[in-house]
């Protein structure tokens, strides 16, 4: 078994596509219309085009609202992405107008930061430091 797709619920799929590609830097992999204003929509990392796809899933199910509100209230990210340099990514994204709820902080073997994806989710970026 392999993990080929994981997903986040987004308020507006096309807005999310713009944020995840133009701002975060992912690339669109699949876009299949699924009815009116609904798509099967995935993005991948340009450094791993055949890697795990991230599904940008519509947040229309009534359970999504309260579920996500509770997570965001406690600052819990919906997904976590690996970066080589958390501080550099933070500065790059802040310059693009991204709002961080948690600036990069060193916590043991990792440096993590949490940003708002403007589509209803918090996203963590995580730099794994080499351990001696």
């Amino acid at each position: 078994m392999r993990i080929n797709i994981t997903g986040v619920f987004v308020d507006d799929q096309q807005k999310a596509l713009r944020f995840y590609t133009e701002v975060l830097g992912f690339e669109k992999k699949v876009e299949i219309p699924f009815g009116e204003d609904v798509w099967w929509l995935t993005v991948v990392s340009p450094s791993e085009p055949d890697g795990t796809e991230l599904l940008l899933e519509p947040s229309t199910h009534p359970a999504v609202g309260p579920f996500r509100a509770a997570l965001v209230e406690d600052g819990i990210p919906a997904a976590s992405f690996a970066v080589d340099d958390a501080q550099a990514e933070y500065e790059r994204l802040v310059a693009k107008g991204v709002r961080f709820v948690q600036a990069p902080a060193e916590m043991g073997p990792v440096v993590v930061a949490v940003l708002d994806d403007t589509c209803g989710n918090l996203i963590q970026i995580c730099e794994q430091r080499a351990t001696e």
Partner: peptide, 17 residues
């Protein structure tokens, strides 16, 4: 160490640090 933390950040720090 840092003011203005969410429950998630606080729990991460307590676990990892």
């Amino acid at each position: 160490d840092r003011g203005g933390q969410s429950l998630f950040e606080l729990c991460s720090r307590l676990t990892l640090k």
